[in-house]
Simulated assay, not measured.
Amino acid sequence: MKRVLTIAGSDCSGGAGIQADIKTMSAHGVYAMSVIVSVVAENTVHVLKKQDIAPEIVRAQVDAIYEDIGTDAVKIGMLPTPEVMSAVAEKLRKYCPKNVVVDPVMYAKDGTALMAPQSIETFKAEILPLADVLTPNIPEAEEITGMHIETEDDMCAAAKLIYTMGCKAVLVKGGHFAGDPIDILFDGEQHISFTANRIQTKNTHGTGCTLSSAIASNLALGYAPAEAVKRAKDYMTCAIEHALELGHGAGPTNHFYSLYQSGLPK
């Protein structure tokens, strides 16, 4: 069985963060493991409080995984402080995992900042260059590049600029645009567009976490980056189409819908 590690924050409501990652990985038939970097008290409506984990505990969690089980892919999500980023980067440089997918989580669905503003430069210097695939949405791509992104051409330019910062491929997600969403993957040689029909639902809690975890799972299963992204987007679309009416705000997607309907994804 392929092994996939998520390094991220915990969402007690189960729709995002570590919980969404583990659900997504399990739905793909891979063995999910976790390193928790922050405990976030949140639900479908808002973030109440969070408590970041001490860097030495983050380091110890990573060591625990690699001294025993190892990985075939790693998904990195919320990294709240420069100190936590440095701890994660130190361990990734030590263990040199393959198939590292980085979702630069900066804001919760309600707009609460999950990455300290002073962390952006540390992220760009220490975490971004370790990514095999980086998956920023439009606001995150704007934070990373300093660009204002309004068009598909802007997305392509942002992806190319982010690529020059050291990652191997960039997927700029266009879900924040009006109309049908389009995502742009740049691998250093070509731009590949992925389009889908917009699903009219408020229940999109944890979609970024879910998509990046699905990409990591598909990379672990042996798919090339473009195919891994395509399969992950197909999985994400199904999960949103059958999202769960839970809570009073942006509800969670249905991570196990395809599993319940027809067995493990092939």
Rank of each mutant, 00 (worst) to 15 (best):
E241A: 15
G146N: 10
A157H: 13
N99R: 01
D68Y: 13
V102H: 10
T145M: 02
R198D: 05
P129G: 15
G146I: 07
P139F: 08
M165V: 10
M25D: 04
I240M: 08
P181C: 06
E143F: 10
K75D: 02
S10Y: 13
K98P: 00
F123R: 05
T112Y: 01
E42Q: 15
Y66A: 06
C238H: 11
F123G: 07
R231S: 03
G206H: 04
A159W: 02
T71I: 12
I192T: 15
H176S: 03
D68L: 15
V102T: 11
D110V: 13
F177K: 02
A178F: 01
Q61H: 12
A243Q: 06
L5P: 00
K23H: 12
P136V: 12
T204Q: 06
M25P: 01
H46D: 14
D68M: 10
K202H: 12
D21Q: 06
T237E: 14
K98V: 11
G174C: 02
A141C: 07
V45H: 10
L161G: 02
L221E: 09
D187C: 07
I76M: 13
L48A: 13
G17V: 11
G77P: 08
C167G: 03
Y223P: 01
S119V: 03
F123N: 02
V133Y: 03
M147L: 15
L5N: 08
L161H: 14
K49L: 08
L128F: 06
E42P: 00
T145Y: 04
Y95Q: 04
A220M: 11
N43R: 09
G251L: 14
G77M: 08
C167N: 07
P82W: 08
D11M: 04
T201L: 11
K50E: 09
G9R: 06
E227T: 14
D63V: 15
T201G: 12
G15V: 09
T207N: 06
V58T: 08
Q261H: 14
S86C: 11
C12M: 10
V30R: 04
P225W: 04
D154C: 10
N137M: 07
M165G: 08
M1K: 14
G174V: 02
G179A: 02
A226P: 00
L244N: 05
N197E: 14
L185S: 01
E189W: 01
F256K: 10
M33S: 09
D103K: 07
Y163E: 03
G17N: 07
P117H: 09
H46Q: 15
H28A: 10
D68S: 15
A87P: 00
Y163Q: 05
K23E: 05
N203T: 13
V58S: 04
A232C: 04
T210P: 00
F194G: 02
I138F: 01
T253E: 04
D154S: 11
G222K: 07
E245H: 15
K94I: 11
E227R: 14
K233T: 07
G17C: 09
Y66F: 15
A16L: 07
P97F: 11
